Amino acid sequence: MDAKQAEVRVLEAEIAALKRAVEELPSPGEDTARVQKSLQEIYQSHPEGWVSSKDLRSNLGHLESELLFLSTLTDINIRNYSKKTEDLTSTEMTEKSVKKVLQRHRLSGNCHMITFQVEFQTLEVQNKENLSSVITDLNIITEPTVYSELSEFVSRAQERRDLLMFFQSLHSFVKWCEYRKRTFKHFKEKYPEAVLLSEGASSSYMGIRSPSQPGFELVIVWKIEIEEGGKVFPKLDLLTKVPQQALELDRNGVVETAPLSFRTLLGVLGIEAALESLIRSLCTEENN
């Protein structure tokens, strides 16, 4: 009997080790050969396990194709993900017992040029009637970027513990940043002498100078705003720099009303056409 009990204890220890190896993802660089060998021994000792293995491979392939589709659709790529589960249920089980499970998630990825790391906890509470799950903690880290508008939004998403809003707004924010960059680059290439991008195409503002009228300069400030609810939209403003002598001759207040007129032009023509009209009105020889 002592020999049998010792054998049982050895088997129980091996089973516990295998469970831990399956449930916990190995850290980068960790040797996984032992885990793979142990799993292979299990399948060899239980031939019916190979059927389940084929089903798992088929299911894994389906999930990978869905993940690829979502990455293409949202431009969000998840590179690493891990999860740890902790059972908080009381050991004294009764008819009115409530099952509580705490899960700690960690993932990292990127959305175009913006990389992020997200850590969050979910608490699942289950009773006989229903199952509920809430995010109890959320921490988001983004790599330093030239997009200053992003930091305030990330802080707000953490405070609200709204992970879905973070990903949805991040996707829209990146789309607008890419559009702004392409637009600035287009006008710089089309009007190289008139358009100034002192901080490159990724800047949030663009300068326009008249080649034939020194001292006249317009600055387009293009910010990307994120509302409290996560809605993303562009906000463009016009700043003017005009010599004092020209201001004294401006009896109709054209320079003073230029920012308001520019907003009206945006509403009528749209962003690209409004910028095109503004550049041509200031820089073409016939208008000069």
Rank of each mutant, 00 (worst) to 15 (best):
L138Q: 11
S65P: 00
F120V: 10
E24R: 15
S210N: 07
G230S: 08
Q36S: 06
R156C: 01
S155T: 11
E272D: 14
I279R: 13
L150C: 05
L278D: 01
G200L: 02
L247G: 03
E149A: 14
V174R: 03
I135S: 04
A13T: 05
N288A: 14
S90A: 15
V101D: 02
E217Y: 05
D250W: 07
P28D: 06
S212E: 15
V118D: 04
K99A: 07
G267T: 03
L70V: 04
R106S: 11
E66V: 15
A274W: 02
I140H: 06
N59T: 08
D137C: 04
L107R: 07
E256A: 06
D87M: 08
V8Q: 03
S65L: 15
T72I: 07
E193T: 09
V134C: 02
S71M: 05
C111L: 04
L88I: 09
Q103W: 04
N139A: 04
T89A: 12
G49W: 12
N127G: 11
V118Y: 05
E149G: 05
E7Q: 12
Y147T: 00
S169T: 12
R209S: 12
L138I: 13
L275C: 05
S45N: 10
N80K: 12
L25P: 01
E95I: 08
S169I: 06
Q245P: 00
T240A: 11
E129P: 00
S198K: 14
E119Y: 05
I140W: 01
G200P: 04
S27C: 03
I141C: 02
L131W: 00
L150N: 08
S204L: 03
F187Y: 15
D137M: 01
E92F: 11
D162Y: 07
V154A: 11
L282N: 03
D87T: 09
P243G: 07
F184A: 10
P28Y: 02
H171T: 10
D87Q: 07
D162I: 06
Y147P: 02
N127C: 05
S277D: 08
K181V: 11
L260K: 13
N139V: 03
R20V: 00
K235I: 00
S90I: 06
E95R: 11
Q36H: 13
S172D: 15
I220C: 08
P192G: 13
W50C: 04
G215W: 08
S27F: 02
N77M: 04
K84R: 15
L275M: 12
S210P: 05
Q213V: 14
S203E: 02
N287C: 09
V51L: 14
H105Q: 11
L278W: 04
P47Q: 05
K231I: 00
E228F: 09
R34H: 03
E129Q: 12
L260I: 00
N77C: 10
P47R: 03
D87W: 12
V101M: 10
N77S: 07
V154H: 06
P144I: 01
K235W: 06
D162G: 08
R280D: 06
K19R: 10
R20I: 00
V35I: 01
D87L: 07
K185Y: 09
R180Q: 15
V254F: 09
